[in-house]
Computed example of a mutant assay.
Amino acid sequence: MDDCLQTIADYGLRSLGIGQRLLPKENFTLCQQVTLIGSGMIWNIYFGVLALLFGFFFATGLALSKGANSPWLRKPAEWFIFLFRGSPLFIQFFFAYFLFLSLKGVSPVFNPFTAAWLGALIVLFCNTAAYTAEIFYGALRSIPKGDIEAADAYGLTGWPRFKKIIWPTMLRLAWPGYTNEAIFLFHATTLVFFSGFPAWQQRGDALYYASYFADKTFNPFVPYPILAGYFILLTLAVIGLFGLVNRALNKHLPQEQRRKIKLRPNIIR
């Protein structure tokens, strides 16, 4: 027990550069694997939370632009969504890293973009914004005409109508699909350190450490189930948190009309 507590103290925050710098080389214990893989989850949560947070607002703007009458707003939004939904996320990471690497040679201001904490975050932000925008756009088109007519009857136009009627209704309709997008985004964060962005001083995410132990022990049946267990817990946390928001969005509706969150597997990202 004392050895495990010492392992947690040594490696619990190693992915952030706190604690032991060198990874264990032999005699790997279960505690070491659980601790280091859990340490890597800090990065997966970082990527997922920030990409969702900023991508949510950008996706709202993209959805509105895609539904706009002006081609100057509609076409850029359509092409952005098509580009990031039409290409694999792995390829997006690959090209983004080499783009940032090229820009780094132009000006030192681009140096941080070649690091995973910023460069990979930008890719995830653009990717989830594109998928979320399509979900929101579908919800916008599904808003009952009666809601819009009622808003017009009350004299609501422009920003007040959007704030009080269109945006809340859009979120209510889109939230189950958006919950699935959030889950898939967290799963997609495992691609970051396998797609070009290097792990500086071996400070990788959860999959990075799981692969390290699998390669060193020649036994993937210990680290990868540990990794899966962490992501199952993370998925349950996302479902629980988004479920609370979903209930708040639907609290004014009768029980039988409330949209429920259903997990739909994503075959390919």
Rank of each mutant, 00 (worst) to 15 (best):
L207T: 13
W72H: 06
G138Y: 09
L22D: 15
L191Y: 01
A153H: 10
L23V: 11
I18P: 08
L52T: 14
I18V: 15
Y137N: 14
G138M: 10
A153P: 04
F184E: 03
E149D: 12
I239D: 00
F197R: 02
V192T: 14
V49C: 11
R21D: 12
K66P: 05
P198D: 03
L156C: 10
I45K: 03
K251S: 14
A210T: 14
G146R: 01
L227K: 05
F213I: 07
L16K: 02
Y212T: 09
T132L: 14
P88E: 01
L62F: 02
R172F: 11
F94Q: 14
Y11N: 03
L249W: 03
R269E: 13
T132E: 13
R269H: 10
D2M: 07
A151E: 06
G204Q: 00
G67L: 08
K75I: 15
L191V: 07
F94G: 03
N111P: 01
I122Y: 06
A51L: 05
D152R: 13
Y46Q: 06
L253D: 00
W167M: 14
W117R: 04
L118H: 00
K104R: 12
I91L: 15
E134G: 05
V238F: 13
N44F: 07
A151C: 09
P76H: 04
G17L: 06
T189C: 11
N219Q: 10
F113K: 00
G177A: 12
G48Y: 08
S107W: 06
W167S: 06
A115T: 02
L173Q: 04
F94M: 15
K104G: 12
D147A: 13
A151W: 04
F28M: 08
A133I: 06
T7M: 03
R74S: 13
I166R: 07
R172D: 04
T29E: 09
L89S: 08
F231K: 01
Y137E: 14
D147H: 14
G86V: 09
F98V: 12
A214D: 09
D147K: 06
L83R: 00
N127K: 01
E149A: 10
L253I: 09
R141P: 07
T179E: 03
I148T: 14
A51D: 03
F242P: 01
P254N: 04
V222P: 11
G146W: 01
G55S: 07
F218E: 14
E181M: 14
L241Q: 00
I45Y: 08
L83E: 02
W200F: 10
S65M: 15
P176N: 00
T29N: 04
K75E: 15
K104Q: 14
R14T: 11
L241F: 12
L103S: 02
G155P: 13
A115I: 04
I81S: 00
P88T: 01
M170S: 10
S70A: 12
A133F: 02
N246D: 12
R141E: 15
M1F: 10
G12V: 12
G61P: 01
Q255K: 13
F184A: 15
G105F: 04
S102E: 06
S195W: 01
L103R: 06
G119W: 02
